[in-house]
Simulated assay, not measured.
Amino acid sequence: MLWVKTFHILFVVSWFAGLFYLPRIYVNLAQADDPAVRATLLGMAGRLYRFMTPLGILALILGVILWLGYGIGQGQGWLHAKLLGVLGLAVFHLACRRHLRAFTMGANRHSHQYFRWFNEIPVLLLLLILILVVVKPF
């Protein structure tokens, strides 16, 4: 179980690195006027999204193994709330894909200010999930 937990944490941390950085690239993309800069940022964003997607999938799979295979948190309220937070992360990840497609097609309608606020969502979800896992308030 400790190996599964270790790799779960590794993939969660790695996935979050992408969830934190990709919206920052979007901030710069929303401000980019130079086509060369825009092309560079789009390339960075695309590669990062392709890299972080399998990390998120592995984090989710190992989390399910810990939950269903080892019974961690079964029947406890904090786990249900955590799963809701993880669902929020998955939705955020998919929203990142939607934004990437919009940038790629030249159809982005959001300002850099929007993406600055959008960037705060994974921070808040991480805080919520950490509190639930460590403190287990219910």
Score class of each variant (00 low, 15 high):
103 F>E: 05
54 P>C: 02
110 H>R: 12
4 V>R: 00
65 I>A: 05
32 A>G: 07
59 A>C: 15
29 L>W: 11
133 V>W: 00
108 N>A: 09
37 V>Q: 12
136 K>A: 13
27 V>E: 13
1 M>E: 06
20 F>R: 07
16 F>E: 11
77 G>L: 13
4 V>E: 03
91 V>G: 08
110 H>F: 05
21 Y>H: 12
136 K>G: 11
71 G>W: 05
89 L>H: 02
119 N>D: 13
79 L>G: 13
36 A>L: 15
40 T>P: 01
42 L>M: 10
7 F>S: 02
47 R>A: 05
134 V>N: 07
3 W>E: 04
10 L>H: 08
12 V>N: 05
35 P>D: 13
37 V>H: 10
113 Q>D: 07
98 R>A: 10
18 G>N: 05
131 I>M: 14
106 G>D: 09
26 Y>L: 08
97 R>H: 15
20 F>Q: 05
72 I>V: 14
98 R>L: 03
26 Y>F: 15
126 L>M: 15
50 R>M: 04
54 P>W: 01
73 G>Y: 13
28 N>R: 13
121 I>D: 04
138 F>T: 06
51 F>R: 04
6 T>R: 04
50 R>S: 05
56 G>R: 07
126 L>Q: 04
98 R>N: 09
81 A>W: 13
14 S>R: 04
2 L>E: 15
38 R>A: 12
120 E>K: 14
43 G>V: 13
79 L>D: 15
60 L>W: 08
91 V>I: 15
116 R>I: 13
94 L>T: 14
103 F>S: 02
118 F>I: 06
80 H>W: 11
61 I>A: 08
55 L>F: 05
78 W>N: 12
64 V>C: 00
83 L>E: 07
60 L>V: 10
43 G>Y: 03
69 G>C: 06
58 L>K: 00
138 F>H: 08
6 T>M: 11
28 N>C: 09
40 T>Y: 06
93 H>M: 07
66 L>K: 00
102 A>T: 02
31 Q>I: 07
125 L>H: 01
31 Q>A: 14
75 G>N: 15
13 V>G: 04
67 W>G: 02
115 F>H: 05
37 V>I: 03
